[in-house]
């Protein structure tokens, strides 16, 4: 049985002594892992999964508010919003972007760098197109008289698409970062983590957008 030793009094105040080097890290299957590249990738993946949980909760809160608000539309103030045709093309662009990013990620893993660069840039460009297309859609709706104030259905459309676009902007920043590194700088392990987690988050936004589209088309 272990014995606790008497405390040793240090000679002066000030901050506690630095921690001595720890055991080598890397995980043994039963515990945590350390800061080697693979472990950092795992930590980054955990972080992005947590981020996805938080984003999912945000969207679920907005969607549940939308369901409740529609159920309360007693004075017929809920008017169905026409889905702008460009929204479908945007959806296709986002899906293709996700496919390009994922194939690019696999190409990177396989060491096919030029193929990776081409696919990643394609995915990033399609993602940018999606964002531009969304702003065209908002203008289209405003031009046809669908403002936030007049109809809760259009208010929720704007809120949900804005919230999604805010996420897309964040994810696109990561895609552009990886694209710039791929084009102009040699790769280091850190960037591989950014590549992996930005691809995962991009797919998540894809799935979230499909859910939103289904709700806009079939329910709202």
């Amino acid at each position: 049985m272990a014995t606790l030793t008497e405390p040793k009094v240090r000679s002066g105040g000030g901050p506690p002594p630095p921690i001595t080097p720890l055991l080598p890290r890397g995980g043994d299957g039963s515990g945590g892992s350390g800061p080697d590249p693979s472990a950092s990738a795992a930590t980054a993946r955990i972080a992005v999964y947590i981020g996805m949980c938080a984003s999912t909760m945000t969207f679920m809160a907005l969607l549940s508010a939308m369901f409740v608000r529609r159920g309360l539309a007693t004075n017929n103030d809920w008017h169905r919003l026409p889905v702008p045709p460009l929204l479908w093309w945007n959806t296709v662009a986002l899906l293709l972007s996700s496919v390009a990013v994922d194939i690019g990620r696999r190409a990177f893993r396989a060491g096919r760098r030029s193929e990776f660069r081409m696919l990643w840039l394609t995915g990033t460009a399609l993602g940018t197109w999606f964002l531009i297309g969304q702003s065209i859609n908002w203008k289209f709706l405003a031009d046809h008289g669908f403002y936030m104030q007049h109809n809760p259905a259009s208010a929720f459309f704007y809120v949900l698409t804005w919230a999604h676009a805010a996420h897309v902007i964040g994810a696109l920043a990561a895609l552009y970062y990886v694209a710039c590194r791929a084009l102009f700088f040699p790769f280091v392990p850190m960037n591989r983590n950014v590549l992996e987690v930005s691809a995962i988050f991009w797919h998540f936004l894809d799935v979230m957008w499909l859910l939103l589209m289904a709700i806009f088309e079939f329910w709202s």
Partner: peptide, 10 residues
């Protein structure tokens, strides 16, 4: 993330 991934080995 710290709790899940950064525990000491074992």
């Amino acid at each position: 993330s710290t709790v899940i991934e950064c525990r000491r080995p074992g």
